[in-house]
Nucleic acid binder design. Structure first.
Lengths: 203, 203
DNA sequence: GTCTATAGCCAGATAGAC
DNA sequence: GTCTATCTGGCTATAGAC
């Protein structure tokens, strides 16, 4: 059985850094706060990760590596579009309840530095939409789906699933609900969103 | 004819501050950069706005005051849900093409400091969903719409319209398109999104 | 109102003892 | 590998001349 890395100093740092960076962003994060949370000395951060920038990049790549498989599930799976919408919606919302800061962290930091995505795009496992697009064309020809561009459908699926978590303070204020009610609304969306999409696209 | 305020120092500052804060966020923005962009001395910023925090709040309230009427259009208007979806989608996408950083700026800063929305909620003109909810219930009873909670429908409308702009670097990378293609896709969404929503909810 | 100069602070990074 | 102490630079904010 392999050693549990979470007990190592390096991983205590990474876990603390995740929390602080995902909550405060690169610019708002403080090395001191990461050190405190990791219960180690500030100079240890530099010993292991050399600089704030490199520590941040480790956290970011880590976060992205968690998100990518979620998307690949809907892009590369062999089931029908309808089945994929149902399983993705259900899985994604469960995923993000476990990692609430993750989507907004990734989006916020990519807005701050859009070039950063180029580094990720070259890597194996980066989500690719081509198979999904072909499948949409095929199911339209078969009379299963109404005409829609694969790109637009994919954007719609992402939007309906990701947006409420990214914009949660705004949503809570507009819909005029507290945290508990918001959580319930998000749980409801596991089936709500899938139905909405399927109603929109099925012939 | 009133004096155009943009020629005043105070408004040069506000315009420069808008650009810098909306691009870099509160934490990433530098007073020096705002001063340079406004072509004035750094100490003038403090003369007119006292502190970075107060200048930021002026910019933020300004941004929110631009966004709120867009939402009130769909919440308070007297036309049918279908008509409101069509006009909101068309108008909102035009609006955001003119103010590309605005939605992500508001969302990012509210995530950084969620308490800030409480200050806005008390103000007159803050979007209120109650009328919209009643209308959804009514149109379902009349057999116009399929059963759906007003909250969920409203979240879906926001998500489909706002998300692609907030997450544009991510969307461009996943859909594998350049800036020009992205813009075209967003223009297409003016009708695309309205059709999608109407297909999803109309009986 | 607008400038220059600088105070005062804080954060990231490093040196060096152990 | 881990600590304390400190350097260095950059940032907000202000003092004060004009």
């Amino acid at each position: 059985m392999p050693k549990i890395k979470d007990t190592d100093t390096e991983n205590q740092i990474l876990n603390a850094a995740k929390k602080v960076f995902q909550e405060k962003g690169m610019d708002g994060a403080r090395m001191q706060e990461i050190a405190d949370k990791a219960k180690i000395n500030k100079s240890m951060l530099h010993y292991y990760y050399r600089s704030k920038q490199l520590l941040f990049e480790a956290v970011f790549k880590n976060a992205f590596a968690l998100l990518a498989p979620q998307l690949n599930a809907i892009l590369n799976d062999d089931s029908s579009i309808e089945e994929k919408v149902i399983s993705f919606t259900n899985n994604y919302i469960s995923f993000v309840v476990k990692h609430p800061y993750l989507p907004s962290f990734i989006i916020q930091e990519l807005n701050r530095n859009p070039k950063f995505i180029l580094k990720l795009k070259d890597q194996k496992g980066f989500p690719n939409i081509e198979k999904f697009k072909k499948q949409v064309v095929l199911e339209i020809e078969q009379g299963i789906l109404k005409p829609i561009k694969g790109e637009q459908l994919f954007i719609n699926i992402l939007a309906l699933n990701i947006f409420p978590f990214v914009a949660s303070p705004l949503v809570k204020a507009f819909v005029n609900i507290n945290d508990t009610e918001f959580k319930q609304l998000m749980v409801d969306r596991k089936t709500e969103v899938a139905n909405f999409i399927i109603n929109a696209i099925k012939v």
